[in-house]
Lab assay of single mutants.
Amino acid sequence: TEIRININGVTIHVRDASEELKKLIEHLLRLGADEKEIREVLHRWEK
């Protein structure tokens, strides 16, 4: 699944996002995570 996240005008594009990762990101956004925090989570997730 491919997702695009727009945070304050900055688009983060994620290829091959699992449903689990998608739910995690949606949850973090609801909690008010910023772009830097989302990128950090994505970076750690890929490892």
Rank of each mutant, 00 (worst) to 15 (best):
V41T: 13
W45N: 02
L31R: 15
L28Y: 10
L42W: 01
E35T: 05
N6I: 10
E46G: 15
L24R: 12
I3Y: 09
E26D: 10
L29W: 10
A33G: 05
E37A: 13
L31K: 09
L24E: 11
V10K: 10
L24Y: 12
E46Y: 15
R30C: 02
R4G: 06
A17E: 04
E2K: 06
L42Q: 00
E35G: 05
E46V: 14
T1I: 14
A33T: 08
R44A: 12
R4C: 07
I5C: 04
L42S: 00
V41P: 00
I25C: 01
R30N: 05
I3H: 08
I12S: 02
D34P: 08
H43D: 06
H13K: 08
G9C: 03
A17L: 07
T11R: 06
W45R: 03
H43T: 11
K23W: 14
T11H: 14
E35L: 11
H43P: 00
G9A: 04
K22Y: 15
G32I: 01
I5V: 08
E46F: 15
E40S: 10
W45I: 05
A17G: 08
N6R: 11
R15T: 10
R30G: 04
K22H: 10
H27Y: 15
K36L: 08
I38K: 00
E46W: 13
I38W: 03
R15C: 03
E19Y: 15
R44V: 09
W45T: 02
T1P: 07
V14W: 08
E46C: 15
G32H: 05
I7L: 10
R39L: 08
I7R: 04
D16G: 14
R39N: 07
H43Y: 14
G32C: 02
S18C: 03
E37L: 13
I7E: 03
H43K: 14
S18E: 05
L21C: 02
E40W: 14
I5W: 00
E35A: 09
I25D: 00
T1K: 08
A33M: 05
L28I: 04
A17D: 04
E37T: 14
V41W: 15
E19A: 11
H27P: 01
L24C: 02
L28C: 05
V10N: 08
A33I: 07
E40T: 12
R30Q: 06
E26V: 14
R39Q: 06
H43A: 13
E35V: 11
K47T: 15
A17I: 09
L21E: 01
K22S: 10
E2N: 12
D16A: 11
K22T: 13
R44L: 14
A33Q: 03
G32D: 02
E19F: 15
I12W: 01
N6C: 09
L42A: 01
V10W: 01
A33E: 01
G9L: 05
I12Y: 02
E46M: 15
T11G: 07
V10R: 08
L42H: 00
E26T: 15
E35K: 02
R39G: 03
K23H: 10
A33K: 13
T11K: 07
R15P: 13
D16Q: 13
R39V: 05
K22D: 02
N6A: 10
E20D: 10
R4W: 13
K47N: 15
I7F: 06
L28T: 02
